[in-house]
Amino acid sequence: MKPILSLLLLLLLSSNLLFAQNEYEPSAANPFGLANPLAPPELKDYQPLIGICDCKSFSRNQDGSWAEAVAMTWEFKYIMNGMAVQDQTLKVDGKHSGSIRQYSSDSSAWYVHYFSSAAPSPSLGTWKGGMEGDEIVLYKPQKAPNGTDGMFKITFSEISAAGFNWLGQWVSMDESVKFPTWKIECTKQKTS
C-alpha cells in the first residue's frame, strides 16, 4: 500500500510543479499570458502594450521622403512563464519581425533581441535601455552611412490603453543629430 501512496503523492507533486512552471504562459483564459509576480517590477513597463494593435508602419524612401504606410498588427505577450515579453509584427508586405524582451536586474536595463523574416541573421541585434519618464527608450550602437559613430534609438511614446507610437532613428553619440528612419502608429485592438 505504501508504494502506491508514494507514487500517487509523487504524481500529485510533479503535476503541481509542472503547473507552477507554466501558470503564467498564454492560455485560453489569458491569451497573452500574465506577468509572473516573481518577475522584476520593471516587467510592468510593457504591461500597457500587452495585446494586439492595428498599426501603420512608415519608412524612409531613398530620397528622404516618407513611404506610404504599410498596415500591420503588433502583438505583445508574456513568455517564459511570465518572466519576459515577446512581440511579433505581421505586415501586409510580408516582412514580419519580432523581439524577445528581458529585464536584467543586475544591469538595471532591458535587453531586446530583434529578429526579422526579411533578414535572417546568425546573431540577433540587441538594444539596451529602459523607461525614461513615460517612454521606453532603447539604444544599439550603429555607425551612420558616412562612418560617424552613433546609435539607433528606439522610442515607444504616447503609451496608453488606446495604443502607442514608435520611432526608430539614428542619433549621434551626444544626440545633437537625429535622423528618423522608421515610425509606427498603433491603436489597440485586443487585450484579452
Rank of each mutant, 00 (worst) to 15 (best):
L34S: 10
L34C: 10
L34Q: 15
A35V: 07
P37L: 06
P40H: 11
P40Q: 10
P41M: 07
E42S: 08
D45C: 07
Q47W: 10
I50D: 01
I50L: 03
C53I: 07
K56C: 05
S57M: 13
F58V: 06
N61P: 06
G64R: 09
S65R: 05
S65D: 13
A67Y: 05
V70D: 01
A71C: 07
T73S: 12
T73I: 11
W74L: 14
Y78D: 03
Y78M: 06
I79W: 07
I79D: 09
N81G: 07
G82V: 06
M83P: 04
M83A: 05
A84S: 14
V85G: 01
V85N: 00
Q86M: 14
D87G: 02
D87K: 01
Q88F: 13
L90C: 12
K91L: 14
D93S: 14
G94P: 09
G94F: 10
K95S: 07
H96T: 11
I100F: 08
R101K: 14
S105N: 05
S105G: 08
S107F: 07
S107T: 12
S108N: 14
S108Y: 08
W110E: 00
W110I: 01
W110S: 00
V112L: 02
H113Q: 11
Y114P: 00
F115T: 03
S117D: 07
A118N: 04
A118C: 03
A118P: 02
A119M: 09
A119D: 13
P120F: 01
P120K: 06
S123K: 06
S123I: 02
L124C: 05
T126A: 05
W127R: 02
K128I: 13
G129P: 02
G133R: 09
E135L: 06
L138G: 00
L138R: 00
Y139K: 02
Y139S: 02
K140Y: 04
K140T: 03
Q142I: 04
K143R: 08
P145Q: 13
N146L: 06
T148K: 12
T148N: 10
M151T: 10
F152G: 00
F152H: 04
K153P: 01
T155C: 10
F156D: 03
S157Q: 05
E158G: 06
S160R: 08
A161R: 15
A162E: 13
W170T: 00
V171A: 05
M173L: 15
M173Q: 15
